[in-house]
């Protein structure tokens, strides 16, 4: 029957159509993501924040460390959009410069965590067996160590150094990542299409490159977006205690700490940095949620 010419034509046409309409996992996800209003709005706001954090300080007539003894604790005005701090420094510029540091620490910290976590988790999950058991045991031990306290100790004893903070924060956060990636790899390893690839003689490395990595990438992407806000929070936590970024450089956590001390006198010193930070965290969380829904619809 199938040899009939019209059937063959119909089939060909059908397969052509399939080709046109066929969408990859990623295109599908992109469409679902675009339908998510909260995530799209967050994306736009976040882009605006990032652009202004990068470019706006250059356009301002004030530098972040310009002190002005005649303009201490000035309320927001057309001259100082967000007012000034206790040393007469322009808060608008300081908030944006602080945002630069916070976002940078957030992204770099998340990057460190993602790289370590993915490599560790993928290795553990893919090799399996005794190696997997030992690696997971190590992970469990690390889980029980009060890292925040060790970081505080490290920072007070070995100097307040921004690179140390990157490393310390990144080193705390990779644990969850490793667990997630390991779980994903473990379940992938036994899937039929991996077996099929093995049977058809695909090399180990090519299986990892062609099948494992693309399938793990989704969850890594989701988790990285959710990791950035938690990294920003950790940095702010340290800066709030006075252990993070040092004067005259600043970050949102450091600004919040100054703002909290002078809030009876000058509430704007707390409000503006707090708004920026909370808004950024909001955006990252909604984007992360949107990505998760887009990449893993059954998880909803």
């Amino acid at each position: 029957m199938i040899t009939k010419k019209e059937n063959v034509d119909a089939l060909e046409k059908f397969s052509e159509n399939l080709e046109i309409e066929g969408r990859s996992l990623w295109q599908d996800a992109a469409i679902r993501f675009k339908r998510n209003k909260a995530a799209m709005v967050s994306l736009v706001i976040l882009a605006l924040i990032i652009l202004s954090v990068i470019f706006a300080p250059m356009l301002s007539q004030y530098a972040f460390d310009d002190t002005d003894w005649y303009a201490m604790h000035v309320a927001p005005s057309s001259e100082h959009l967000f007012g000034t701090d206790s040393l007469g420094r322009d808060l608008f510029v300081r908030t944006l410069i602080g945002g630069r540091i916070s976002l940078m620490v957030g992204v770099l910290g998340a990057f460190v965590a993602v790289v370590i976590g993915t490599v560790y988790g993928a290795t553990s999950g893919f090799i399996g067996g005794r190696t997997d058991r030992i690696m997971m045991r190590i992970l469990e031990i690390l889980y029980s160590i009060p890292f925040m306290f060790l970081v505080i100790v490290l920072v007070t004893f070995f100097g307040r150094n921004i690179y140390l903070i990157f490393v310390a924060i990144g080193a705390i956060a990779w644990l969850d990542m490793a667990r997630i990636v390991r779980g994903q790899t473990l379940s992938l390893r036994n899937k039929e299409f991996i077996e099929a690839a093995h049977v058809s003689g695909v090399s180990q490395w090519n299986i990892i490159r062609r099948h494992i990595i693309p399938n793990v990438l989704g969850i890594v992407a989701v988790y990285s977006t959710l990791l950035v806000p938690s990294m920003i929070l950790t940095e702010s936590f340290l800066s709030f205690l006075g252990l993070g970024v040092q004067e005259p450089m600043t970050s949102w956590g450091a600004l919040l700490q100054e703002g909290a001390q002078t809030m009876e006198l000058a509430i704007w010193q707390l409000i503006f940095p707090a708004t920026f930070m909370v808004l950024t965290l909001f955006c990252f969380n909604y984007i992360g949620d949107g990505l998760r829904d887009a990449l893993d619809p059954k998880d909803r």
């Binding site: 702010s236 936590f237 956590g253 703002g259 809030m263 509430i267 930070m277 909370v278 909001f282 969380n285």
Partner: peptide
């Protein structure tokens, strides 16, 4: 809940003090 998650305790605490104490 989303607000609660993104509002770190060191932002919330000064805000609470500002509203309920001061």
């Amino acid at each position: 809940a989303m607000l609660g998650i993104v509002m770190p305790s060191f932002v919330l605490a000064p805000v609470l003090i500002y509203i309920f104490s001061i």
